[in-house]
Amino acid sequence: MNTPYPAAGNGRADGRAGGHGVVAEKEFASYYDRPILKPPTWKASNIAGYLYLGGLAGASSVLAAGGELTGRPRLARASRVAAVAGVSLSLAALIEDLGRPERFVNMLRTFKPTSPMSVGTWLLSAYTPLAVAGLASDLTGRCPALGRAAGYGAALLGPAVTTYTAALLSDTAVPAWHEGHRELPFLFAGSAAATAAGFALIATPLAENGPARRAALAGTAVELVAGRLMRRRMGMIADAYELGSAGALMRAAETLAVAGAAGTLLSRRRRALAVASGAALMAASAFVRFGVFAAGVASTEDPRYTVVPQRARASAPPHHPG
C-alpha cells in the first residue's frame, strides 16, 4: 500500500450523483465551522463604490462618443461629466481603501499581466487623462479637435474600464466571485450601460435621449440575464447571492432594474418619467455591485462554499492508478 493519498477515511460519498446537496450532507466537515478563507480586507463602500463608479465612467465615455458622432451635444457633455466624475471618485475610493494610501504609486512600479489590479491601474492611468481632456476641451471650447480625439480614446478604453473589474474580482479564491467569472463581466457591462444611460436619461432632454433609452433597455436585459445565468451555473455557491444581505441587495437590484426599464419604455414623451427611470436604473446598478460584493464576502465566511465544491472535485477518483 504505497499510495500516499488513500480514499477519504470516513463517509466517502460513492453514490454522489445527486448534486451538491447530497455531497453536502454526506461529506461536509470543517474546523469548528470556521472560515477557511480570509474575508476580503476591502470596505464595501470603497470597493463596491469603485466598481460601480468605474462602470458609470467607462460606459458614459462610450455614450459621449456616440453623442459627439451623431450630433447630440447635450448627451455628449452630460456623459463626459459622468465619466470624469465617475472615474475620479472611483480612483479616490480605490486609494482610500489601501492600507498605505501614500504608496498608491507603487502600483506603477511594475506591470503585471497576471494581476488584474495592475492591468486595471494602468488602464485607468491611460483612460483618466483622456476623459478629463475630453471634458475640459468641451467645457472651455479650447482645442476642440484634440478634445474630440481624447474623447474617442476614452470611448475605446471605456468598455475595458467597465469589465476589467469583473476580472479583478474573479481572479481570487472567493467562491462567489471566482465561480462567476464567465458571467460577471457581462453583468458588469450590462449594469454599466444601464447606469450610464440612466444618468443620460436624467441629464439630457427628450430630444436627445433616444439612444440612451435603447442602451438602458439593452443594458438592463444583459444585466438581468447574466445575473440569472451566473447563479444557475454556480451550483450551491448561488446561495451566497440569494441569502442574507447579498440576497436582499440582488433582489432589490432586479426589482429596480425591471421598474426602471418599464419606465424607460414609456418615457419617450415624458421627461419626469425619464428622470425617475434613470434614477431607478442607476440605483439598480449600484445595488448589483454592492450585492456582488456582499455575496463574495458571505462566500468566504462560511466554509461550506469552499469545502463542498472542492470536496466534490477531490473525491473524484485520482488520476493516477493506486
Binding site: G58, A160, T162, T163, A167, D171, H178, A189
Partner: peptide, 23 residues
C-alpha cells in the same frame, strides 16, 4: 483561469461597445 477570465471580460467589453453603437 486568467486566460478564460480575460476572454470573458473582453467579450463583455465588446458587447458593451457594440450594444451602445447599435443604440
Amino acid at each position: 483561469d486568467l486566460p478564460s477570465i480575460w476572454r470573458h471580460a473582453a467579450a463583455a467589453a465588446l458587447t458593451l461597445a457594440a450594444g451602445v453603437a447599435a443604440a
